[in-house]
């Protein structure tokens, strides 16, 4: 493996843990899925290159996570740190796997690169949206190990 794509990335501050509201502790109230909940799931994913999380690198942002609990949809835009980042697909795949493991199956999850932030945006988006390619990728044990490392 050659040098890092982005050797000296800008580090952003991580948000604090979500504070627990009284209604969240009330058994009788139903808590809907919201963007912060999804963001909390993906913000802790490690970057494949740096010992930093996707949140600290500003790859994922809460404002770019859209959730509609009633319509069972989740839409996420992520922003690679540099336009030629070769890890973009891997990051997208990690987000997808994390959500596959953490969200109920009723949700339809779309993961895309923030428009205009990557050179091969369309190709990557296509790969990430292709169920069969994702399934095939996850059967590759080496790739799965790399994804698991990002998720651990």
């Amino acid at each position: 493996m050659g040098g890092l794509d982005n050797a000296n990335p800008v580090v952003f501050q991580a948000t604090k843990e979500r504070s627990v509201l009284p209604e969240e502790e009330d058994d009788s109230i139903v808590d809907k899925f919201d963007s912060r909940e999804i963001f909390d799931l993906i913000r802790v994913i490690n970057d494949p290159e740096h010992p930093l999380t996707l949140e600290e690198l500003n790859v994922v942002e809460e404002s770019k996570v859209k959730v509609d609990d009633n319509a069972n949809t989740v839409h996420i835009y992520f922003t690679p740190t540099i336009p030629h980042c070769s890890m973009a697909t891997l990051i997208g795949l990690s987000i997808r796997v994390k959500l596959l493991r953490s969200l109920p199956s009723r949700f339809k999850v779309d993961i895309e690169i923030t428009p205009g932030t990557h050179d091969s945006e369309i190709a990557v988006n296509k790969q990430l949206a292709d169920k069969e390619r994702v399934a095939a990728a996850l059967e590759n044990s080496h790739l799965l190990d790399v994804v698991n490392q990002c998720l651990s």
Partner: peptide, 8 residues
Amino acid sequence: SLDDKKRL
């Protein structure tokens, strides 16, 4: 349980 009604 991933679809539990409570977030916690």
